[in-house]
């Protein structure tokens, strides 16, 4: 299986241009809102976090991880992990100071934003995108068509940006979960659906994506072993990531507690 891994970088000009365009767009909005934010540190952090998110996207897709995604399912899964669990929350962390007060958005965009960041909608959208794209026909299509492959990655990035929003946003912000109980329920719901998919992949007795057994040098046996590694790469780091999310986003709930401990 390791023999199939090739150390190479995959330069993708369209992606690079798109990332630069997004960064320029974000920078423009950021520069305009810096005056409004009135907090230099918060403002600089927002730019740094958003930019880091884009760098992670570039690394996931163009580094040897992404360059091997059509040879090894495990590398493809690692690529998805980076997009969903690292790039997406970084982008949300960067965007929150700009979008927390969404009043400057045009009305249709604002309505869509408010709708999509509702926790139930956010969870449903991210879950649907994750599961639909892992269905063998959709996954197979993405492996054979570069444009579809790009759409698949964009779906993960957008879907999980929507998922992370209610957790990362302050309780007072649009979509922000209001209580610790709601945050815990939301985290467990997210962890359960992605964990179930990962478990199904890890414990499957047959190859889900025949493409990987047809790669030169591969066989059904190596593809199955690779698939198990891919599932494990989603299962275990995913669990740890959701726990980290719990530690970072479950706050001391000042508004929902009282401290009249009497003896």
């Amino acid at each position: 299986m390791i023999d199939l891994f090739v150390w190479e970088w995959e330069w993708q000009l369209p992606l690079f241009v798109a990332l630069v365009a997004v960064e320029v767009g974000f920078f423009t909005l950021w520069a305009r809102s810096t005056v409004r934010l009135r907090n230099a540190r918060q403002s600089a952090a927002a730019l740094a976090l958003f930019t880091s998110g884009l760098v992670v996207v570039a690394l996931a897709v163009m580094s040897p991880i992404g360059a091997n995604d059509e040879r090894l399912l495990s590398m493809h899964m690692l690529e998805h992990d980076l997009l969903m669990w690292f790039a997406a929350p970084l982008l949300v962390l960067g965007a929150i100071p700009l979008l927390a007060d969404e009043s400057w958005l045009p009305a249709p965009l604002r309505r869509a934003f408010v709708f999509l960041t509702r926790p139930v909608v956010a969870w449903t959208v991210s879950t649907l995108l994750l599961w639909v794209w892992h269905a063998p026909p959709a996954y197979g299509l993405a492996l054979t068509n570069v444009a579809v492959h790009g759409v698949e990655h964009a779906c993960y990035l957008v879907g999980y940006s929507i998922y992370w929003w209610p957790l990362i946003a302050a309780p007072s912000a649009t979509g922000g979960l209001k209580s610790s109980a709601a945050r815990v329920g939301y985290i467990l719901a997210g962890a359960t659906q992605s964990g179930l998919l990962a478990a199904l992949l890890t414990f499957a007795g047959s190859v889900w994506y025949p493409h990987y057994s047809l790669v030169p040098g591969a066989s059904v046996t190596t593809a199955l072993a690779d698939q198990r590694v891919a599932g494990a790469l989603m299962l275990y780091p995913g669990a740890i990531l959701f726990l980290v999310a719990a530690v970072l986003t479950i706050r001391a709930p000042a508004a929902e507690s009282i401290a009249t401990a009497t003896r």
Binding site: S180, A181, R183, V184, I187, L188, A191, T192, G195, L196, A199, L200, F203, L235, A239, F242, L243, A246, V247, I250, R251, A252, P253, S257
Partner: peptide, 24 residues
């Protein structure tokens, strides 16, 4: 409350793994 909630998430994550390991 924060400590209790975090411990609950960790504990339930463990339960999830046990369910996946056995049923799946």
């Amino acid at each position: 409350a924060r400590a209790l909630w975090i411990a609950l998430v960790v504990y339930m994550t463990g339960n999830g793994f046990v369910i996946f390991a056995t049923l799946v």
